[in-house]
Design a protein around this nucleic acid. Structure first.
Length: 295
DNA sequence: AGGATTTGACCCGG
DNA sequence: CCGGGTCAAATCCT
């Protein structure tokens, strides 16, 4: 068994190593004409995050802090104490796999969903799927914007202490580098060489029909009829949400540009990215919608 | 069968 | 008391 100090040190090393790798990625991106501004911006943000995380670890010279924090969490299961939060808004790119666009490299487990007053769309609650076992207290809230259904707001609460990446995307040295898939991947190159206005949906993971179903039928239609979200393939459990009125502590807008790298068809559980796309009206019309039938 | 998701109930702070 | 956050049993999916 390794003690908490060793674990702390290991986590610190992980963070610093990750920062170094991200910096390398940034350098590559800067030297690559096909890389977008968003790519660089996102990398910079991630580098900042790793440094902040590393610094906070150093400040907590008491290695038991995380353990204690989790204990407190366990003692107050229904109300978490004030935790560091960060919010990012994700502008969905048409034609890109929704799951990929929302994937942040961690695996999440949904533990709740709630209608929020004044919000058209329900909010989904997720916690790190390694959570309880590893003492990772990270959670996130995902909600679709009232005004712009293509904007998703993700609020991250607490820091990951598990240093685990999604089982469907294992990347030993870069736990959160889902955004940098194999650049030899044809689809990735297709994507990177495209300007947003010239996106060719066929380059992506989802065929047109499917994207129509997701983006047009589900997102855009104010009054979805038969093409509501219940028609969505149950195997594609992507979640959407957003809240335009958000007043988060920090906010950043990220335009995802993830590749068409799939979850490699891995049949491991798709974690974290399910979502009720339909507005509340649909929910009320189809209270048993996810079952696809009325009782 | 086991793990993930859904959903109504519960808890608690404002 | 209201509303956001969480729990946990039921249900679904693989």
């Amino acid at each position: 068994m390794e003690n908490s100090a060793d674990l702390e040190l290991k986590n610190l090393m992980n963070e610093l190593t990750q920062g170094r790798e991200l910096a390398k990625q940034l350098q590559i991106s800067l030297n690559t004409s096909s890389s977008s501004d968003e790519t660089c911006e996102f990398l910079i943000q991630r580098i900042k995050n790793t440094y902040e995380k590393a610094l906070s670890m150093l400040n907590n010279d008491d290695g038991d802090d995380l353990d204690r924090e989790f204990k407190e969490y366990q003692n107050t299961t229904r109300k978490r104490k004030a935790m560091p939060t960060s919010t990012k808004k994700v502008q969905l790119c048409p034609g890109t796999g929704l799951e990929e666009q929302l994937d942040d490299g961690y695996s999440w487990k949904k533990y709740g969903q709630k209608d929020i007053l004044g919000a058209k769309y329900p909010r989904g609650y997720y916690r790190c799927s390694h959570g309880r076992g590893k003492g990772c207290i990270a959670t996130k809230k995902v909600q679709r914007s009232n005004n712009d259904p293509t904007v998703i707001e993700i609020t991250y609460i607490g820091e990951h202490t598990c240093n685990h990446v999604s089982s469907s995307n294992p990347t030993p040295t870069l736990p959160e580098n889902y955004i940098f898939p194999d650049t030899n991947n044809q689809s990735f190159q297709n994507f990177n060489n495209l300007s947003p206005s010239s996106i060719n949906p066929e380059s992506y993971i989802f065929p047109n029909a499917m994207m129509d179903n997701y983006v047009l039928g589900t997102f855009m239609s104010p009054t979805p009829s038969e093409s509501n979200y219940f028609a969505i393939s149950p195997t594609l459990t992507s979640n959407y949400g957003g809240n335009h009125n958000a007043h988060a502590t920090q906010s950043e807008v990220i335009t995802p540009f993830t590749s068409s790298v799939t979850s490699s068809g891995i049949n491991s559980p798709v974690v974290g990215l399910d979502f009720p796309f339909a507005p509340k009206e649909i929910d009320s019309n189809f209270p048993f919608g996810s079952l696809g039938f009325f009782p």
